[in-house]
Structures are given as C-alpha cells and as structure tokens.
Write a protein that binds this DNA or RNA. Structure first.
Lengths: 216, 216
DNA sequence: ATACCTTTGTTAAAAATATAAACAAGTTTT
DNA sequence: AAAACTTGTTTATATTTTTAACAAAGGTAT
C-alpha cells in the first residue's frame, strides 16, 4: 500500500461511486475490467481512475486490468465499511425517520444503535424495529454504548448545543443534516454535511441559468 | 453585472452558503458587513468572497462594505429563487415523504405541484396537504401543469426508465436521490445528485482514518 | 516460443482553483 | 479636510486537480 499521507477529499468522495459501479459489475457476473472501460462507463478519464486507485496501492495488473471482486473488496477496506462503527440519531422527525429506515447502515460501515428525540409524542414509538429513546437518556446511553457518530436531524437552532454536548460525550463524527455549519467548529471531529437546501438552490440556479441561455 | 460566461461550479456551490449567512445576519438586525468580517465568520478569505461576488457584479461600496439585505436579495436573484419553478416528486416512500414536508420549496425557487407513487397503499394519502397521485396520471398531469423539475425518490433500478420518460414529458432538471448516476445520461438536463449512501461512506472513511492515525 | 497487443503504475505536463498582495477610487468617520 | 476603511480589480503565486504520455510487465495469439 502506498503512503497514506493526505489523500485529497475529491479522491475520497469518488471512492463510493467506484464501489457502486464495481458492485453492479460484480452482480452482473463480470470478472475483470480495464481502467479504460470503467472510465467510459463512469464518464471519467482512465487516467483519473488509475491515479485515484494508486493513492492506496496497485490493485491491477498490466495487460489484464482489474479483478472486479478484488477491487470491490479493496475499496470497501479503504472506506472501512467492515468496521461497523456505532451511530446514534438525534431527532426522529420526518427526515430522521426516513434516514433511519432508508439507508442501509450495515452495508456502509455503521450500526445504528440508538434513536433519540425530545418530543413526547415520538419517544417510545418504533422506527425500523428500534424504540425511540428520550433525549434525557442520551448521556447514560453514550457512557455505556460509546457511539462514535451522531446523525443530526434536528432544527438548525439546536445544532450547536447538541453538537457540543455530543462531542463531550465522546462523539467523533457527525452526519449533519441541519443547515448549521458544523465544520470548523471542532478540530479533530469528522463532519459530513448534507445541506439539502443548498443542493436544491444549486439546482434552481442551473434551471434558471439554462433558460436564460435559451432566451439569448 | 459582469459577464456570465461560465461561472465555475465551486463558486455556484458557495452561493447558498453566503445566502444562509446573510439571512442569519439579516434576522439578527445587522445592516452592513465587510468582506473581511464575513470571511472571518465563514472561515474564508475576504479575497475569495469579493472575487466570488464579482462574478456577478459589484454589490458593495468602498469604505462601507455590503448592505446585508441588498446582497441577500441579489444572491437570491442570481440563484433564481424568486422564479418558483414547478416541481413534481416521483416516489412517496419514507424518503420522499420527508423531503416533501421538510424542505421549504417555496423559499428555494420551487413550487411542489404534484406527488406521485405507484403503490396503491400510498396513492390517495395526503402529504403536506397534497394528495398523492397515481403514477399512471403522470403523463396527463405533465401535459397540463408542465413541471420543469422532477425529484426522484424511487429505487435505483427504476431511475433510468423514469428519467427517460420524464425528459420526454418536458422535465428539464432532476433532484436525484437515487443511487443511479443520472448525470451524463442527457446533455441539456440539469442534474443535482444527493447520494446519501456515498455521503455516509465518506464519513465512514473519515472516522476510520482518524482512528488509524491515533493508533500510529 | 515469439511477436504483438493490452494495460498498468508512474512521471510529467497542463489546467483549474484558491490564495494572497496591491492599489486606485470612493465612503465614512473624526 | 484629513485619516481610516473597504471595495472592485488586477496581478502574481501557490495549491490542487486533471489530463497526457510512456516504459515496463503481463496477456494473447499464432
């Protein structure tokens, strides 16, 4: 394996996509693939694929290409989806409910061990076979279960205080669905933002942009 | 206003974030702000902010800075959130339900005019005051309502066929929540992907990466 | 077995993006 | 009126990302 010293974020962000394509190929029964053919399928350059993979090691063979199952497994190892880190969800409203049931955490390196809410109407209900716990039990829960990731599905105005508390309880990473900008608030905490509102507005720009162009 | 010819994607993606910060400042009653102070709040350089804004025009004033409300409105205009493009949602499962109720489409340039599903148990139910329609009515609906954006909240295996059909019905952009890679399938169709699974795996990498480092 | 083809890993070049510095011109403050 | 700010803009620099190129090695075919 090559030197890990700082693989760039864009490379990391492409790994899950490689993983998806390889899974599909694997399920189709394809055994091997060249960077050239994969690049055509994915709309990238072969060069970029080879360079991305070489950040982690040489998984291919000259004249042959890549063994799909092996590469698929290697990327899984790089991403660490075999580790099954414990995750908790904070906020079980519409969005939290959907995220908890829709994502396959177990296939992506996580085990959702607790769902918390402070709404009495929600506490005690079941989501995906798990009973929603009261936020007042969060501290005790974290001390015994020691989750490492928190999924924030709460209103933006509560994000900061919740995050601070969770960090003090040992949380090392956030999957942040709030509009609040968690990044740069902590130093050694991983933050993955899902700013749905921003995404929608970006689409809005693209739509109106293209219609502007048509007018001209 | 400056020349629009190809503002880079990174700049566009930063606009919603500027918009958010300005909204917050506006709500706090702050009237003006300098690029320097905004840069400190947002964790950017003043230079980058001035350069980003100057892709679209000069909204500030020497010695004064930017009028927050004006800049907020200008960015809104650039993004086109005043246009209220018609959007439809395809798939009203857990995720679709949450997206439909959680996002404030009206504040982000869209009007959600129809929600479709092919599950008889879901068709006819109400989501956010709107009755879920049967997918068989999609064609007629599009011919009369002429929506421009479709929000895909369906299983990945149905994404391609649905997208093709929607494009033939006049859809010009997708907000894609499926794992299927819609991009590069069409030429003049805007696609904004929200690959939640990819995002989760990226977080997985970050978490395991940092723990690896701690071990060393 | 030999020659040819394919494809990698890697290096080098190019392009894009971000950062920083600098400054005239206009605004506010004192 | 002078001093202190701050923008819009230009220029330069650094960093990051992408693309191109190619020797070396394995595969394939005859």
């Amino acid at each position: 394996m090559k030197n890990n010293n700082q693989v760039s974020i864009p490379v990391i962000k492409r790994l899950p996509r490689y993983h998806r394509y390889l899974e599909e190929l694997k399920n189709m029964g394809v055994v091997r693939i060249s960077s050239k053919e994969l690049s055509q399928r994915m709309g990238l350059t072969a060069s970029q694929i080879r360079q991305d993979l070489n950040c982690f090691g040489g998984f291919g063979q000259q004249g042959y290409g890549y063994n799909i199952e092996q590469l698929y497994n290697e990327i899984g190892l790089i991403l660490g989806i075999n580790k099954k880190s414990k995750a908790i969800m904070i906020g079980a409203g519409n969005l939290g409910h959907a995220i908890a049931t829709h994502l396959h955490f177990e296939n992506r390196g996580f085990d959702l061990v607790g769902i918390f809410d402070n709404n009495p109407q929600v506490v005690g209900t079941e989501i995906g076979g798990k009973t929603v716990l009261n936020s007042t039990d969060l501290e005790d829960f974290c001390k015994t279960e020691k989750p490492v990731v928190a999924i924030l599905c709460i209103p933006a105005e509560y994000a900061a205080e919740n995050a601070d508390k969770l960090v003090s309880l040992g949380i090392k990473g956030f999957w942040n669905f709030t509009q609040y900008d968690l990044m740069s608030r902590y130093d050694d905490i991983a933050v993955e933002n899902v700013h749905l509102g921003d995404s929608l507005m970006t689409l809005c720009y693209q739509i109106n942009k293209s219609s502007d162009n048509n007018e001209v």
